[in-house]
């Protein structure tokens, strides 16, 4: 699952976009506006044990179970959605379930002689081995290949990360019963050295990203800041000044709070404009 398909898709490249800047931006803006303005049906909030479907043709999807009598019941407090044959319940609160390939922000909370243990807001700690955390200098440099692989000493690797350091990682492997293995090698990954990491409920993360990234784009545009939304409910932010960051944090909490409502993008936009005016933030 995961990584192969993701790689096979054309990777977005920064340079290629700059060429079609003006043409695309107009159409995009329209699309964004249209999306947020369209009236979404208000989805019903269901509760654990509630019968959400009795039609025998339907299949219990995520967050739902099928009873012996054919009724489908919810296991969460969440929003019911029927997609094709599947009845799903999207939980409104919950813990983060690690998925292979997810990008998460972890915090080093323990070290052993050979690995770092990272709190990734899941029920298990993530394991980051130095070999997955630091790029090796080129091996064999200056030696003929026949001399075999020359391994550089790595004893100081464990000192490169301190307790309490926050790292953007990707989940390499793991299962329900196994601690997830992480890597911090790769694009966008690595140690965070500036800004701030805030935490929200992981179930609200899709809303902070918004449909096709609309919310994140809105925040970046209006508040001139850098944001990285990790799947485990942590968000790295770095703004121009503390006032901007402060407003951004408040807005993110507002999105978290109102994640189940409709018309969120418009409301957030209006809120940011209003607050910027009040606080005199450019």
């Amino acid at each position: 699952m995961g990584i192969f398909e993701k790689r096979s898709k054309p990777l977005f490249l920064f340079s290629s976009v700059q060429n079609k800047k003006i043409v695309t931006c107009k159409s995009c803006k329209k699309k964004v506006k249209k999306m947020s303005a369209e009236n979404k049906p208000i989805r019903e909030i269901v509760t654990p044990g509630q019968v959400i479907a009795t039609d025998p043709g339907l299949i219990a999807g995520r967050g739902a179970i099928k009873e012996d009598n054919g009724q489908i019941t919810s296991v969460f407090v969440g929003l019911k959605e029927i997609r094709g044959k599947y009845v799903n319940v999207v939980p409104l609160n919950g813990l983060y379930n690690p998925q292979i390939g997810d990008k998460v922000i972890g915090r080093v909370i323990a070290k052993t002689p050979v690995k770092f243990l990272l709190d990734i807001n899941a029920k298990f700690l993530g394991i980051l081995k130095p070999s997955d955390a630091f790029k090796r200098p080129h091996q064999n440099r200056g030696y003929p290949k026949s001399m075999g692989t020359y391994r550089l000493p790595r004893e100081n690797d464990m000192d490169k990360l301190k307790m309490g350091d926050q790292i953007i990682c990707k989940i390499l492997s793991g299962s329900r019963t196994e601690e997830p293995a992480l890597t911090s090698l790769g694009q966008e990954l690595g140690l965070i050295t500036e800004g701030l990491v805030i935490a929200i409920s992981p179930t609200k993360i899709p809303r902070v990203i918004g449909k096709k990234g609309s919310m994140i784009a809105l925040l970046k545009n209006l508040l001139h800041c850098k944001i990285f939304v990790a799947q485990n409910g942590r968000i790295w932010i770095h703004g121009r000044n503390p006032e901007n960051e402060r407003l951004l944090i408040e807005v993110i909490y507002k999105i978290e709070r109102e994640a189940h409502t409709t018309g969120l993008t418009d409301r957030v936009k209006a809120y940011i404009l209003k607050e910027k005016k009040i606080r005199g933030i450019k």
Partner: peptide
């Protein structure tokens, strides 16, 4: 904003 929105597109 141009950059960002174009990315979305």
């Amino acid at each position: 904003s141009l950059q960002n929105t174009s990315q979305i597109d």
